[in-house]
Structure formats: C-alpha cells, structure tokens
Design a protein around this nucleic acid. Structure first.
Lengths: 167, 167
DNA sequence: CCGTTCTCTTGACACTGTCCAAGAAGAGCT
DNA sequence: AGCTCTTCTTGGACAGTGTCAAGAGAACGG
C-alpha cells in the first residue's frame, strides 16, 4: 500500500499510536494523518473519498475498524449529529457542534471548558467520560440570508462542509 | 385501521395536534398516543413493533413522516445517541441522555435548567432552538457490576430498554 | 358539499455501519 | 534474526435505518 508519508511524520504518528497503546499499522497511520491534517469534521465516506483521491484504497470495514480503535483510545472523537451522520475528527481540542436545520451544515463550537467531561449529569454512580452538546437551530449564514429579503438559504448547499479542508 | 382510542383521549390528542397546527389524522393520533403513554425513549422500530403487537400496522415511511411532523412542531423530540439509534420521545419535559459504553443502555437525564436551551453556544448570529447533551461513560449499574468482582456487565443485555415501558 | 391541500400508503431504494473468516502483519521474546 | 502469539486488515456479503416518489385518500375552509 505504501503510505505516502514523510518519515518524520510517520514517526510522530507512530509515537501517538504507541502512546495510546495501539499497534502501528499502515491504515492507522494513513487515517490518523488524514484526520489530523484536516481541522474539521468529516463523515466516514468523506474520509474514504479523500483517500481515494490520493490513490489510496482502503476497505470501508477497515476504515470503520481503525476509527473505532482510534476513538476508544481517545485520539479522535465522533459526533452523531443526525441519523446516518457520524462525524469523525481529531480530538485535540474538545468541542461541540451546531447543526443548522435550514442548510444542514455542521459548525464546530469550542468547548467553554476545553477538557472532556465539561458537564456533569445528574446521575449518581455513573462514570462520565465525555459530554457532547449538539445545538440545533439556524446558523448565522442562514439567518443573514433570511434577513436579506427571503433569499433562499439553500443556495449554500455546503452540507457539512463549512469548516472544509481538502479531505 | 380503526384506532382503538377512547373518545376523550382522542379529543385530547386531537387538540394537541390542532394547537400545533397539524392536521388530525389517524396515524398521528396513534403514534402520538403511543409516545405519550410511554415515558421513556423508543427507537422507531420499537414504535413499529409496539403498534404491531396492538394489531396496528403502519408503513415505516408513515411512522417516519409522522415523527418528522411531530418533531418539527415540537410535540416530540428525537435524540441521536449513536449511529442508527434515533430515539423518539415525548417532548413534555426536555431532557438529555447518558449512553453507557458497556451495556449500551440509554438513560434519561433531567435538564439541569428545565428550560429548553440550557446552554448557549459561542456562535454569534445563530438562532438556537435547542441544545441536547449526550454523556458517554459507564452507567451506575455497570459500575456496580464491575465493583462486585468482575461480574460480566453484559449480563444485562437490556440495550436501550432501561426506562422500559411496554412499547 | 366541493375543491384545495396536505397526508398516507406502497414499494423500492440508498446509505451506513457491521459481521465473518482467512490471511497478513506487528510486537515481544529468545 | 527467527519464532510465536496476538492483533489487524481485507473483501464480500449482510442488516438496519432512513428516504424517495407517485398515486390514492382524507382533512380542512368556505
């Protein structure tokens, strides 16, 4: 498969994997690299397409496997922002999401606390690992578009790509 | 189809629909009734099975349609607690969810503030309609089971039925 | 009662995520 | 290095979920 990663990058990623007690494998390096390079959130299919564009073909099952292991070791996070919309992203900075019900875009919102369990549930005896907040409403762009005299907000059609990188 | 609803119940539900500016139709009455009778959250398939057990057969697409209209009018709420796990429940009391990563159960957590948007995102210009919090971690039962000397927490196998009613 | 508008129904479909079994590859040990 | 154990990857198939489209039917307002 020959992951096209510079040696030092490869070393850095491998170190991350090892420190998370994960074996260093090529698919893991590739996917971790892709998720770290892109700041924002991506669907799994986005990741697949991205890799394909770079000439790397990984089975979907592998991508899901890798993501699962990365998630369970805390290197990346997933957010469910709607049915069939599992978003994957680097967990370097904990954050939350705003989902626009008009254009469907998902916007990252920084976590006020910054650390992982930023809220405590009223649930005695539970071990809380993380708290994710999903806001729903109308995003600033759609609000503005509406204010500008009924412009159709759906012009944007950037569904879930507003933080877009190249992935 | 003959919804088996007592007249006064039917009246009450119809009034609710009307006050939400929704047409009063049999599927809507049936589904709203089911969701209100059960306190907790249900997957769409749960709702379908429940209705089937009562001898009512509704197409899945209809259930999804009805739920969508009920949600958009604020009568019920949905929560995405994981991939392919859309939960539907009455929106009478706004609340949040705790998902156990061991047994998979979903536990309702009351909203700290009580009003709907209990948190404000740092996103100027956006219109926030609701905020949903999902906690992930280990639920009290699994914590207890673990403490009791390595009992396999998976005994419970009550996946998403801990608040269980009969639906 | 009539027409308009919305909703339901039906079936098929697409998308997402998972499972399985065989083989390959990483990690630790000698 | 070589061996062995363990884990991971692969590929295909599969299942669960949610959506779409078109026609038939029902509800609302006059």
């Amino acid at each position: 498969m020959s992951a096209r990663l510079p040696p030092e990058r490869r070393q850095e990623l491998a170190a991350r994997l090892r420190s998370a007690r994960l074996r260093v494998t090529t698919p893991r390096l590739i996917i971790l690299d892709a998720l770290l390079r892109v700041g924002g959130h991506r669907s799994v299919e986005d990741v697949l397409r991205h890799l394909q564009r770079e000439g790397i073909r990984l089975p979907r099952a592998t991508v899901y496997n890798v993501i699962r292991s990365l998630v369970s070791s805390g290197l990346v996070m997933v957010a469910d922002v709607g049915p069939g919309r599992m978003l994957v992203e680097s967990a370097e900075r904990w954050h939350h999401h705003f989902v626009c019900r008009e254009c469907g875009s998902v916007i990252d919102v920084p976590c006020a606390v910054g650390a992982k369990p930023c809220l405590e549930p009223d649930l005695p005896g539970a071990e809380v690992e993380e708290a994710q907040i999903i806001w729903r409403g109308v995003c600033p762009r759609c609000v503005a578009a509406r204010a500008e005299g009924g412009l159709d907000a759906r012009d944007q059609e950037t569904l879930s790509r507003p933080t877009g990188g190249s992935i």
